[in-house]
């Protein structure tokens, strides 16, 4: 029976989907009689708080114009009294850009241990414990918060928990006030959004990559279809870009762009180190290649050996079927 707080992240006026993954984690940690709460910060966020209240038992809504833009430094100031008041055994955040910006400072100020980028969380006695990927994902570390009685914080890797379904909890929304000493130290100047129509593959979570195995532009069209079915962006290894079939900004590799997707489908890519060197963050790698000895199968998680002109359309059809 534990009290768990989730700090909800939003993308502008909508909740980040990761919140519902955190809800799953929080419910599991809270156990049967435990309660899960959410904190959401922003300006004009009544709707978001109400949405959260369907899944969380309590929602602390920090609604203030000074919180209009997410700000790891300012948000920490806002949240500190809530945490300092005690009562939370675990405080969870997504290990995303905001979590990295917010959690370390907040944990120090609140005097809580912080387990970062966890793949799994559980209780070891009264202490929060988890597993995290270290050394580029080649090794897992089991970590546990030192006992202290103040509760612990954790940031959770996206995708580590399945998102909770639509809730029916009818939780309580509490209007949380900013502390009197609240004084944001960052002045936001502007937010830069990628230009419309321009895909920034460094930010893509799903990528379908094409290599020289596609022998002509027809092959590229096939792969485009697969990418669309997966909701993925298209990228390429050098030879495809050299031919001018895709822009240079799509080239993944040591001489191109470094990407950090979660899913990487490599179609007709041999898997040279020059190309693989551009892939970071240990994604789930699917390889489709006609050469069984291609090095890509040494780095992929799963693969199909076959002619891509057959495999790619079949896979696309199967995915569409699955989506229904």
């Amino acid at each position: 029976m534990k009290q768990v707080l989730v700090i909800a992240e939003r993308r502008g006026a909508v909740l980040d989907e990761g919140v519902f993954e955190l809800l799953t984690a929080a419910r599991a940690l809270a156990g049967g009689g435990g309660r899960v709460a959410a904190a959401v910060l922003g300006h004009g966020i009544g709707g978001l708080a109400a949405e959260l209240a369907r899944g969380f038992d309590r929602v602390f809504a920090f609604d203030d114009e000074r919180l209009a833009e997410p700000d790891g430094d300012g948000d920490a100031q806002a949240l500190l009294p809530l945490l300092a008041r005690g009562g939370f055994d675990a405080v969870l955040l997504a290990h995303g850009n905001l979590g990295i910006d917010l959690a370390p400072g907040l944990s120090v100020r609140a005097g809580m241990p912080l387990l970062a980028d966890c793949l799994e969380l559980h209780w070891a006695g009264q202490s929060l414990a988890g597993t995290r990927a270290v050394y580029g994902g080649k090794v897992h570390a089991r970590v546990v918060a030192a006992a202290g009685g103040t509760g612990a914080m954790a940031t959770v890797r996206g995708g580590a928990f399945a998102p909770a379904g639509p809730g029916t909890v009818a939780g309580e929304v509490v209007a949380a006030a900013l502390p009197a000493e609240f004084a944001p130290r960052r002045r936001p100047l502007r937010t830069l959004r990628p230009e419309a129509g321009e895909v920034d593959i460094t930010q893509s979570e799903r990528l379908v990559a094409v290599g020289r195995g596609i022998e002509d532009e027809d092959g590229l069209q096939l792969v485009r279809g697969l990418a669309a079915a997966l909701g993925a962006d298209l990228c390429a290894s050098r030879p495809v870009v050299d031919k001018g079939w895709l822009p240079r900004s799509c080239q993944v590799g040591t001489s191109g762009v470094t990407v950090r997707p979660k899913l990487y489908v490599a179609v007709g890519i041999s898997g040279s180190f020059q190309h693989m060197g551009g892939i970071k963050g240990s994604p789930f790698v699917v390889a489709i290649n006609k050469d069984r000895a291609a090095p890509i199968f040494g780095v992929a998680d799963v693969g199909i050996v076959g002619d891509l002109s057959e495999v790619v359309p079949a896979l696309e059809a199967a995915i569409e079927e699955q989506k229904g």
Binding site: R212, D216, P239, D242
Partner: peptide, 8 residues
């Protein structure tokens, strides 16, 4: 070998 592949 690269050139032979890239130029078909």
């Amino acid at each position: 070998e690269d050139a032979i592949k890239t130029t078909g």
